[in-house]
């Protein structure tokens, strides 16, 4: 047979062994250090990027805000603070993130401002219908400040299982492990990333200006139809904790809270199965806020949009966001009168 390969040991000095161990580890350490700072601004993970951006805006707030907009991605690209400011004046910021955080991070951001003596006068909380049954997605914990997760610096408090505390640590201090898998994707999509996600206004608005993609809308439509079939609506334990917090805020402060349904695709809302689910969910949500004087449940039923103004079933284009923002302001005026 062809001669089999063997292991031929090589002589080496102590110095060389040490250099072979230390230098690669040092290189990895330095790369990790660089990534800690780089990813805080430009995380290759689009979810992380948006959370980091919104948190950096939050930390820069140094005056009491008139209109704080929090919530999920439907609000992130659906509510334009500049329109609020132009319409009714006052300062406004959009700190919406993702449905995977439910109501929780909106409450945390609100609490952060309250504890910093910068309590906003009004809070608009935009939530898509399918965020209500979700508990907070642990992978996102790592993007929130250490003190929020480990030292419970903000309320409401959330019990985070030990396995996810590890993720928080890795996300903050070992991005080379935690986020580096996205680097190859980022390199491939760098240009489009810079166009799409990197553009977030200083007021936090993340406009969608890249045209309507019918395929995406149709696929999302099917997803939501499937989601609401053979399923009962409910509110997740984490969101119940958040609701309790909002009720306490409404009782103990003079902050006005406007809990708004996200915009919706008209064809989706017209589907009977979806509509039944949605209506039942709204009844459940309303029941929690019936006696909360300062928490107003608005945009119920939701304002509907056709495909030409949508990116997906609940995400609007920039033109759609203008309509939605103005609609919310009308809803808020109506609520104030009531």
């Amino acid at each position: 047979m062809d001669k089999l390969p063997i292991e031929i040991l090589k002589k080496i000095s102590n110095r060389k062994i040490v250099s072979l161990i230390v230098i690669p580890l040092l290189v990895a350490f330095l790369v990790n250090l660089y990534l800690i700072f780089y990813f805080e601004r430009f995380s290759p993970n689009p979810f992380y990027f948006i959370v980091n951006k919104k948190l950096s805006i939050l930390k820069k707030i140094d005056k009491k805000v008139d209109w704080l907009v929090v919530g999920d991605s439907s609000g992130n690209q659906g509510v334009n603070p500049a329109i609020i400011k132009d319409s009714i004046g006052g300062s406004s910021y959009n700190l919406c993130t993702f449905a995977d955080m439910g109501l929780m991070d909106g409450c945390w951001m609100l609490d952060y401002l309250i504890k910093s003596d910068l309590a906003p006068k009004n809070v608009i909380m935009v939530q898509v219908y399918d965020s209500w049954n979700r508990n907070v997605y642990p992978a996102l914990f790592g993007q929130y400040p250490f003190s929020w997760i480990y030292r419970k610096a903000v309320e409401p408090e959330l019990f985070i299982p030990e396995q996810y505390r590890k993720d928080v640590f890795y996300s903050h201090f070992l991005p080379i492990i935690h986020q580096a898998d996205r680097i190859p994707d980022r390199i491939k999509t760098l240009r489009s990333f810079k166009q799409k996600l990197a553009y977030i206004d200083d007021n936090g608005y993340n406009p969608y200006t890249f045209g309507v993609n019918e395929y995406e809308i149709n696929a999302d439509f099917k997803y939501h139809l499937k989601y609401t079939t053979d399923r009962e609506p409910y509110i997740s334990p984490h969101n119940l904790i958040a609701i309790k917090y909002l009720q306490e805020i409404s009782e103990n402060t003079d902050i006005n809270i406007y809990l708004a349904n996200s915009p919706l695709h008209d064809e989706l809302f017209a589907d009977s199965t979806f509509n039944k689910f949605y209506t039942k969910l709204n009844e459940i949500i309303s029941s929690h806020f019936n006696e909360s004087g300062r928490v107003h449940y608005i945009n119920n039923p939701p304002i509907l949009f056709n495909k030409s103004l949508l990116q997906s079933s609940d995400h609007l284009t920039d033109e759609g966001a203008e309509i939605f923002t103005r609609h919310l302001l009308k809803e808020i005026s109506k609520a104030k009168l009531e």
């Binding site: 690669p24 580890l25 990895a28 898998d181 190859p184």
Partner: peptide, 17 residues
């Protein structure tokens, strides 16, 4: 040293999370 450094970085970046 260069090879080991590159391999280590690739393990971190391209390895399964």
């Amino acid at each position: 040293i260069v090879l080991f450094s590159i391999m280590l970085l690739i393990i971190f970046i391209f390895g399964a999370q």
